[in-house]
Simulated scan of single mutants.
Amino acid sequence: MGVTVWSSSSTIILLLTCALLPPSAKPDPNDERCLTQLSESLQDPLKNLQNWTKTTFANPCQGFTSFLQGATCNNGRIYKLSLSNLSLKGSISPNISSCTNLQALDLSSNSLSGPIPPDLQYLVNLAVLNLSSNRLSGPIPQQLALCAYLNVIDLHDNQLTGLIPQQLGLLARLSVFDVSNNKLSGPIPSSLGNRSGNLPRFNASSYEGNKDLYGYPLPPMRSKGLSVLAIVGIGLGSGLLSLVLSFTAVCIWLKISEHKMAAAEEGKITQLMPDY
Rank of each mutant, 00 (worst) to 15 (best):
G63D: 12
G63P: 10
F64G: 05
T65F: 13
T65Y: 15
T65P: 00
T65H: 15
S66Q: 07
S66H: 09
S66W: 11
S66M: 11
S66I: 15
F67H: 14
F67E: 03
F67P: 00
F67T: 01
L68P: 01
L68Q: 02
L68C: 08
L68F: 05
Q69E: 14
G70Q: 09
T72P: 00
T72I: 14
T72K: 12
T72V: 15
T72H: 12
T72E: 15
T72Q: 14
T72W: 05
C73L: 09
C73I: 08
N74S: 14
N74G: 05
N74Y: 12
N75G: 11
N75R: 10
G76P: 08
G76R: 02
G76C: 08
G76I: 03
R77D: 05
I78D: 03
Y79P: 07
Y79D: 15
Y79V: 03
K80I: 14
K80G: 04
K80P: 00
L81R: 11
L81W: 10
L81F: 06
L81M: 11
S84A: 11
S84M: 04
N85Q: 10
N85W: 04
N85E: 08
N85S: 15
L86V: 01
L86D: 00
L86M: 12
L86A: 02
L86W: 01
S87R: 11
S87A: 15
K89I: 01
K89T: 14
K89R: 13
K89D: 03
G90P: 07
G90T: 04
G90M: 06
S91I: 11
S91M: 07
I92S: 05
I92T: 07
I92M: 05
I92V: 09
S93E: 01
S93Q: 01
S93P: 00
S93D: 04
P94E: 00
P94C: 00
N95Y: 09
I96Q: 02
I96V: 14
S98N: 12
S98K: 06
C99N: 01
C99R: 03
T100M: 11
T100Y: 06
T100P: 00
N101C: 05
L102H: 06
L102I: 09
Q103P: 01
A104V: 04
A104D: 08
A104T: 06
L105C: 07
L105W: 03
L105Q: 04
L105H: 05
D106L: 13
D106Q: 08
D106S: 12
